[in-house]
Amino acid sequence: MTATDTAPTATDTRFRADHLALLESHAIFVLREVASESERPVLLFSGGKDSAVLLHLAVKAFRPGRFPFPVLHIDTGHNFPEVLAFRDARVAELGEELLVARVQDSIDRGRVADPGPGRSRNRLQAVTLLDAITEHRFDAAIGGARRDEDKARAKERVLSFRDTFGQWDPKRQRPELWRLYQGRVLPGEHVRAFPLSDWTELDVWRYIEREGIELPSIYFSHRRPVLERDGMLLAVSEWVQPSPAETVEVASVRFRTVGDATCTGAVRSEARTVEAVIAEIAASRTSERGATRADDRFSESAMEDRKREGYF
């Protein structure tokens, strides 16, 4: 029964208010509200599919004008080269301003401890992000998080308040009625804005298909050396090297999410097109984060704890 509604085609649905059109319109609405009501908004861009969709929606919301905010990448230093290439090409093509805040700089300045070579820097990103927000005095950070990703995210508002420490307090969220999004904050506070809140993984892929949105090549099946660790398939890289007990194989894989390369798992796949990926996801029995994020696999509160600390 899952997700088999009739696939819309580009021509007959644009003016039919089907569910993708409504999700798109709502996301554009949120982007325009945040851009209007916040003094210094910023759009967070990871190079992943959700942020590629966000950029596409920003184009629809603000062209022929320029974006009313810069684009910020929190760089863990553990990147897939394909994703960095995609980031730079996409931002250059749009002619928008790109800011990069590096976790390595936070480590060098002693803000966070280096977890060591090959260890995930995922959690450290929160500090780098909050420092960038403070430095640039951003009062709104727009991100591509979705409520279907995790049970803590499922509880979060579209505009989610952060105190002067960057903390999310799930027991004290602002009421958020109708479409009256309210992002006013005091100096030092900010909101996170999530225009894709009500989108599911499948909605994102259907939208990518409908709109012809370009993605980093690692989202599609390719052959690369991988090793299995903690039940996940990790790409062999500068930061992920086999221990004596681990064996490297060359496999056909794709990624369902893009994050710190040390904790982002691949899935075995032959899907080389968006259409093939959608077919695989519709039949998948594993959630997006369960399949591919080592950091969420150990505790039922992992995401809630990271969010309290200021994570995306």
Binding site: M1, T4, K151, K155, P170, K171, S197, T200, D203
Partner: peptide, 16 residues
């Protein structure tokens, strides 16, 4: 304590 949003889809509809 707070609203949780869930999503479901069938042949005919998406539910929020």
């Amino acid at each position: 304590i707070d609203v949780a949003y869930r999503y479901a889809a069938t042949m005919t509809r998406k539910f929020i």
